[in-house]
Design a protein around this nucleic acid. Structure first.
Lengths: 330, 330
DNA sequence: TTGTAAGCGTTATCAC
DNA sequence: GTGATAACGCTTACAA
C-alpha cells in the first residue's frame, strides 16, 4: 500500500472522505504524503465497495438531434452540479435496445441511475416482466401510470396551444406533421389529441389527408411530409410540426415549392431549438424550459438513488408558445 | 455465491468468458443455472480485477454545438461497434477543467481512454508537468508535436480551399470570422493562415478590419461579428466563417441588415452540419467526413488501450469544399 | 482518535 | 478440464 508511506491506513481514508474527528496534524501529514506519492483513490474499488459509480446514464434516440443535444447539455451540467457524470447512449430507433437497457439485460450497467427518453410507451414498458433494476426517470413522456417517475410538459396542451395560435392568425386548412406510423408512441398521440381538440374548438374538421406521418423527427422527414401536403389539390395554409426539426424541413419544402412562409403557409414547431431563432424565417414554436426539465430529472434520480422505494412522481414542466416570423410574428 | 447453485466457481468464469476447454455438458449446466438465478456478472468487480471499464470519454467544449453533437453520434456508434460505451463531458470553455481532465487530477476517472477535442493547444499541454495518465487521442487539432495521437483535417488547407472558392466566384473584399482572442488556440490560427495564403495567391491583401474575432463558435458570435463587418465603410462581399454555426449567425445578420446572401455577401463555413443543408440559403461549407474521423479516433484509442507504448500517430482526414446557395451554387 | 481485519465479485495463478 | 486460493483497492464494523 502506497499509503503506508508515512502513517497508517484507516486514517488516510478518514482524511480522504472528510471525516470529522481527525487531528489537524494527522490531516496535514496525510495530505503531504498524498502529494508526494501522487496518490489517487481508485474510483473503481470504491465503487465495488459502495455500490455507487457516480454516473448517470442518459438515453436518447439520437444525440445529434438538436433538442436532445440541448437536453444532454443541460443534463450533463445539472448532473455535474451534484457530483455525477453522464454516460450518453443512443437507441437509434431500436426498441429491443431500449428494452435491454431497461431490464438491465445489458450486462455493462455501470451507472447508478437512468434518464430515459424513450420511444416505447410506458404501456409497452409495463409488459416487460422484469422491472427496472436501476433508479429510472422517464423524459418527455406523459402517459403517467404511477410506476415510473416522469418529467415532461403537458404534450396535449402544448399541441393545443400551438394549433390555437394558427387558428388565431386566421388559418383554416391546418395540417400536422409528426404522427407516428407506430401507434404505440405516446408523445405523438398526445400531440395529435391536442391538435384535434384545437381544431374542434375552432369548429374545424380534422382531415386525414392533413395528417402526415414522420418515420423519425429529423429534417428530411419534415421535408418529405411537407412535400406530400403541398401536392394535395387543396394544400394547407398552416402546418403544425411535432418537433422543430420537422418544421425546419417543412419550411424548406415550402420554399422549394415556390411558396412563402408564412404568407402562403404558416409553420410552427415544438422544442424551441436554437436553430429556429436564427433561421429564415425564424421559427414559431412551443418552448419547453429544457434546463428545468433536466434539473428536475437529475434531482429526481439522485433522490431515488439515495432513497429507493419512493412512490413515482409526475413532474410537469412549463411550456409557452413563442410567436416568430414563421407564423407572421415580428 | 449465487453460482454454487449447481456446480463450482472457476468453471462458471470459464463459461462466461468463453474459455476453450469446457465440456459441453458443463457449459449447458452453467448457462441454465445462470438463467435460473438471473445471474449477471458484476461489471464493477470485473473492472477492478481487469483494470478495464469498457468506457471511453469524449470531451468537447459543448455538446449542443451541432458539429460536436454529430461527432458524438459517430463516436458513440463507432465505440459501440467495438464494445465500448461513451461518457460525454463538456469543458465549457474552462481551461482548468481541460487540464484537470488531462492530468487525471479529476479523481473520477473511470474510463479506459480519452477522446479530446481541446481548446488548449498541444503547446499548452506540453507545459503540463504530468503526462496524461490515460490513452489519449486529440480531435480537431493539427499542431502535431509527436507526443499525442491526432485525428484531424488539414485546417490550413481547408481554409485555403474555402477562401479560394470565394475568390473563384469573383469576390474581392473577403472577410473572416472566427479568429480567437486567445492567441493560443491552434485551429483558428491555422485557418487564418490558410485564409491569408489564399488571399495572397489571389493577389489580395489581408486587411485587419476584415478579420473578426469570435469568443465562441456559436450563432450569436457569428451574428455579432457579421454586424461589425457590415457596418464598415466598405463592407465585405464575402465572409469565410471558421465554423458553420458562425456562418448561420452571419447569414442571418446579412439579411437583417437588408442585404442578400449570396448576391451582396457570399458566406461559407466549415463543418458541413446538417442544418446547412436545409437552411435558406443552403450553406456552402467544407465537409469533414466526421464518421471517418470518429472511427479512426475510436480505433486509435482502442489500439492504444490494448498496447500502450505505441508512438504517437497523426491521422489526417479528408475534406472537400461543398458549393451551395450561400456562395451562389445551385 | 486511530489501527485491524473482513469482504465487495471478479479474474488469474496454481496445483490436481 | 476443474477446483481451491490469492489478489484488485477500497470502505467500514469493530477493537484498541
Amino acid at each position: 500500500m502506497a499509503r503506508h508511506a508515512q502513517v497508517s491506513l484507516r486514517t488516510v481514508n478518514n482524511v480522504v472522505s472528510g471525516y470529522q474527528h481527525v487531528s489537524e496534524a494527522m490531516r496535514r501529514k496525510v495530505h503531504q504524503a498524498m502529494e508526494e506519492l501522487d496518490y489517487r483513490p481508485n474510483p473503481i474499488a470504491r465503487t465495488l465497495r459502495t455500490g455507487r459509480t457516480g454516473v448517470l446514464a442518459l438515453v436518447v434516440p439520437e444525440i445529434d438531434v438538436p433538442y436532445f443535444a440541448e437536453l444532454a447539455r443541460e443534463v450533463i451540467n445539472a448532473a455535474a452540479g451534484i457530483g455525477y457524470r453522464v454516460i450518453v447512449d443512443q437507441t437509434g430507433h431500436d426498441h429491443d435496445r431500449e428494452r435491454r437497457l431497461l431490464t438491465g439485460a445489458d450486462r455493462t450497467m455501470l451507472f447508478d441511475g437512468l434518464l430515459f427518453s424513450p420511444l416505447v410507451t410506458p404501456a409497452e414498458l409495463q409488459e416487460m416482466q422484469d422491472s427496472p433494476v436501476v433508479p429510472l426517470v422517464l423524459l418527455g413522456e406523459h402517459d403517467f401510470d404511477g410506476r415510473y417517475d416522469h418529467v415532461a410538459i403537458d404534450n396535449e396542451q402544448a399541441a393545443f396551444d400551438a394549433v390555437s395560435h394558427l387558428v388565431a392568425i386566421g388559418r383554416r386548412r391546418i395540417a400536422a406533421i409528426g404522427v407516428q406510423p407506430q401507434e404505440s408512441y405516446a408523445t405523438p398521440q398526445q400531440r395529435t389529441a391536442g391538435f384535434q381538440r384545437a381544431l374542434g374548438d375552432a369548429g374545424l374538421p380534422m382531415e386525414a389527408r392533413y395528417l402526415q406521418a414522420a418515420p423519425h423527427y429529423r429534417r428530411a422527414a419534415g421535408y418529405a411530409a411537407a412535400q406530400e401536403l403541398l401536392a394535395l389539390p387543396e394544400p394547407p395554409d398552416a402546418i403544425f410540426c411535432y418537433a422543430d426539426l420537422l418544421a425546419m424541413g417543412a419550411v424548406r419544402a415550402v420554399f422549394d415549392a415556390g411558396l412563402r412562409v408564412p404568407d402562403d403557409v404558416a409553420v410552427i414547431g415544438i422544442d424551441d431549438i436554437e436553430e429556429g431563432r436564427y433561421s429564415r424565417p425564424t421559427l414559431s414554436t412551443v418552448s419547453l424550459d429544457t434546463p428545468q426539465i433536466a434539473l428536475e430529472a437529475v434531482r429526481r434520480v439522485a433522490s431515488r438513488i439515495d432513497e429507493p422505494g419512493q412512490p413515482a412522481l409526475q413532474i410537469t414542466a412549463a411550456h409557452s408558445v413563442l410567436v416568430r416570423e414563421s407564423t407572421g410574428g415580428a
